[in-house]
């Protein structure tokens, strides 16, 4: 890979300052960034490590909201997000044990890989993405694959998840990468049900609003049996056609609802 300057600040302010340099990039767990850099597809002049900032790591729960620090590794969420079991379970299915010890929630959400798991949880939970500058609602944050509302040099410092009455994540793995070929996160709140889908769409994570309406009226797998998922915008690749992914969206949604019972 190309060489770069490595810095490891101990506060968010220092990190934000370090990121003002041209071609500086934040480094969180590096589980996606480093393989990309090995292929020389990414050439930062400077990497600003976020893993030395104590404020960015940790899980806490209060007032029905689960807060996760931006640089919290997946393994920590899996172990400590007991107040939001579906989120903990999702974190425990990302990658593998070694990846979960390094990869972070902030890194995943900032990258917004169309097959990543976390975006579905954030979107289905109506989470708030907290940055060094502002708070962004999940509905405004995800803007298509690998695209988010983050500005240059903006750092995710935390994510606030309203804890639902019931929730479940169904991940169907792509056989090679073990990313989500399609993943569906269903979350039931007092004011309605939210369904977010990852891995399936050319536009990245999305909400399946028809299912949300049907499930808000009747939270049972049967409620969606009459729905069809349009395959027009679905990803078609070596691992599955658009029609196959559309099928998975429906099947996995049904299973997620069943698992909530």
């Amino acid at each position: 890979m190309y060489n770069f300057e490595f810095v490891k600040p101990s506060s968010v302010d220092e990190a934000v300052a370090a990121l003002r340099d041209e071609d500086a990039q934040p480094l969180s767990g590096g589980q996606t960034l480093i393989p990309t850099m090995k292929q020389r597809l990414n050439q930062p002049s400077k990497l600003v490590s976020l893993t030395g900032i104590a404020d960015l790591v940790g899980v806490s729960s209060s007032g029905g909201v689960l807060s996760v620090g931006g640089a919290t590794p997946h393994a920590t969420v899996a172990a400590e997000a007991g107040d939001y079991p579906a989120l903990a379970a999702l974190a425990g299915q990302i990658g593998d044990p070694a990846v979960r010890n390094r990869g972070t929630i902030g890194g995943s959400l900032a990258n917004n890989d169309p097959a990543a798991c976390y975006p579905s949880a954030a979107l289905a939970s109506g989470a708030t993405i907290v940055t060094n500058a502002r708070e962004i609602a999940a509905d405004d944050y995800f803007q298509g694959m690998f695209t988010t509302a983050l500005d240059e040099g903006e750092i995710i410092t935390g994510v606030k998840f309203p804890i639902p009455q019931a929730a479940n994540y169904q991940k169907f793995e792509q056989p090679a990468s073990r990313f989500a070929l399609t993943g569906v996160f269903v979350a039931k709140y007092a004011d309605g049900v939210r369904v977010a889908v990852t891995g399936a769409s050319n536009d990245g994570v999305f909400r399946w609003t028809e299912a949300e309406e049907a499930l808000s009226a009747n939270f049972s797998p049967n409620a969606i049996s009459g729905l069809t998922v349009a395959s027009d915008d679905m990803i078609s690749d070596l691992h599955g056609s658009a029609a196959y992914r559309a099928n998975l969206v429906k099947v996995l949604t049904g299973r997620a609802v069943a698992a909530c019972a």
């Binding site: 490595f6 480094l27 590096g30 589980q31 480093i34 393989p35 990497l47 393994a75 044990p97 070694a98 990846v99 010890n101 390094r102």
Partner: peptide, 9 residues
């Protein structure tokens, strides 16, 4: 903690 040493600076 178990990590992949090829994916960590």
């Amino acid at each position: 903690k178990q990590v992949k040493s090829c994916t960590m600076f």
